[in-house]
């Protein structure tokens, strides 16, 4: 928790990326891939795992090398490290499935400029030990994946009537005669769903605060 005194516990480090400091919903980082790839649930998983992999690996390496990297070239070094891992992910996905690779498009390579990764490298990994950095990376990665799924599930369910399309686990939600809301898997749908989810979360937060205020009064 941000209002807590003293160094955060390991559990807090892990959990805050999921909710209190969720990179997408709270900090509005990495909105480009969030909007671009969430038209399919499988893309969300792939993107989430890729980002998590890059986060963890670069976090690990950076926190290990943190005392060897001069301050002046810190960002340049981070970018080289991140770009290396992103390229690895890029090749890995190509070798696993070309269809997946096609549907993610350039956004795998664009992980390089995803603010979440550079931000965590700068704000956390370069200041903390490897164990904590990895925990933070996993938390942030899960938070990012969770946010992607929040969009992806809605967009795929309404936009195609399915969950997990293009995988062996495809589930049809509404039967064969469903009329898909094509807009959901098109660009405007991304903007609308993220916007509406932000409103939903703001409303939930507001209601919780009101409740808390009421109990505090009582």
């Amino acid at each position: 928790m941000s209002d807590q005194q003293g160094p955060p516990s390991s559990m807090d480090v892990f959990l805050r990326g999921l909710w209190q400091e969720n990179p997408v919903f709270v900090m509005l980082l990495g909105t480009c891939p969030t909007l671009a790839v969430t038209n399919k649930v499988i893309n969300c998983f792939a993107m989430g795992v890729s980002v998590m992999f890059v986060l963890v690996m670069s976090g690990l390496l950076i926190s290990l090398l943190r005392s060897f990297i001069p301050k002046q070239v810190r960002i340049a070094s981070f970018i080289i490290i991140i770009a290396t891992f992103v390229t690895i992910v890029d090749y890995a996905i190509q070798s696993i499935s070309l269809d997946l690779y096609d549907s993610l498009g350039a956004f795998i390579q664009l992980i390089v400029v995803n603010c979440i990764i550079l931000g965590r490298a700068e704000a956390f990994a370069s200041k903390n030990g490897p164990a904590k950095s990895m925990l933070d990376a996993v938390g942030m990665g899960l938070g990012f994946t969770f946010a992607l799924l929040c969009l992806g599930v809605i967009r795929e369910a309404l936009g195609n009537g399915t969950l997990m399309m293009d995988t062996p686990f495809e589930i049809s939600l509404f039967g064969p005669n469903f009329a898909p809301w094509s807009i959901m898997i098109l660009p405007p749908g991304g903007f609308f769903v993220l916007g509406l989810e932000l409103i939903l979360f703001a409303w939930l937060r507001k209601r919780r605060e009101q409740r808390r205020a009421q109990t505090a009064q009582a």
Binding site: A179, W181, I183, L186
Partner: peptide, 10 residues
């Protein structure tokens, strides 16, 4: 416009 893009056939 929402309907046009969502349900082009209908």
């Amino acid at each position: 416009a929402f309907l046009q893009i969502s349900f082009p056939v209908a």
